[in-house]
Nucleic acid binder design. Structure first.
Lengths: 116, 116
DNA sequence: ATGCAATGTCGTATATTTGCGACATACTTC
DNA sequence: GAAGTATGTCGCAAATATACGACATTGCAT
């Protein structure tokens, strides 16, 4: 395995990067925004709204579902996807903590010159 | 090009996913946290702190630098990296806007059942 | 100038992601 | 039950990402 030496990193770092990877594709960002905008949790309409094939969209949906960021509920023939707002809020807090940590410390000088 | 049909998405979605991709690896998250914790913008010490080869760390640094999230300043023989806190703050705002949008709308029901 | 140390780049091997057509499944309707 | 529709899974091809050793470059010290 010459790939993904993730085990050597903090659990926090791994989790943050896992969520970041879920958002690392515009299609998945678009899916979340779509679910946020439409009250009704759409199903295959998502595929119709995106410039990708239905198969590909389904895969992106599965990726988001694997992280539990979205949830799918079978309603007869169609599947209803919705956001897991509770988890999204927790993720938001983690990202905020990360960014606050990153922006609070002394960094570059006034004209972006390192202070070392 | 059977990959990255990013051009079909919003500029906002593309940018968010680009930054997310930069954070989609624990090593890069660790690098940012390291730069945040150490006052002095370290150089190759970063490689010593991570469980990766110096070459690999250098590549991760270049990726972060390509997005201007970090900056490197040559100081004689060593290179000083530091966080671009200004940009990080802007990115933080964008992520916050995204998460607020995602968590505000009506989503799953009380027991995480879709409301459709 | 010579030697050494710190960095980055290049080439390469492997793993993963992305995208999509073909197929299987499940459910609704007639 | 037959036909049609909505979804997901599987398998494949191409593009990317990850990891690292070998090499080139640059600057410091002797």
């Amino acid at each position: 395995m010459t790939y993904a030496k993730t085990a050597a990193f903090t659990e926090e770092q791994q989790h943050l990067s896992r969520v970041a990877k879920a958002l690392a594709h515009p299609a998945r960002v678009a899916i979340i925004q779509l679910l946020a905008s439409k009250q009704t949790c759409i199903s295959g309409d998502i595929a119709a709204e995106l410039p990708l094939s239905r198969t590909t969209v389904s895969q992106h949906l599965q990726e988001l579902k694997a992280l539990d960021l979205i949830r799918g509920e079978i309603d007869g023939l169609t599947v209803c996807y919705c956001l897991n707002t509770e988890l999204l809020q927790r993720v938001h807090q983690q990202f905020t903590a990360f960014f606050l940590e990153a922006t609070s410390g002394a960094a570059c000088g006034p004209d972006d010159a390192c202070a070392c």
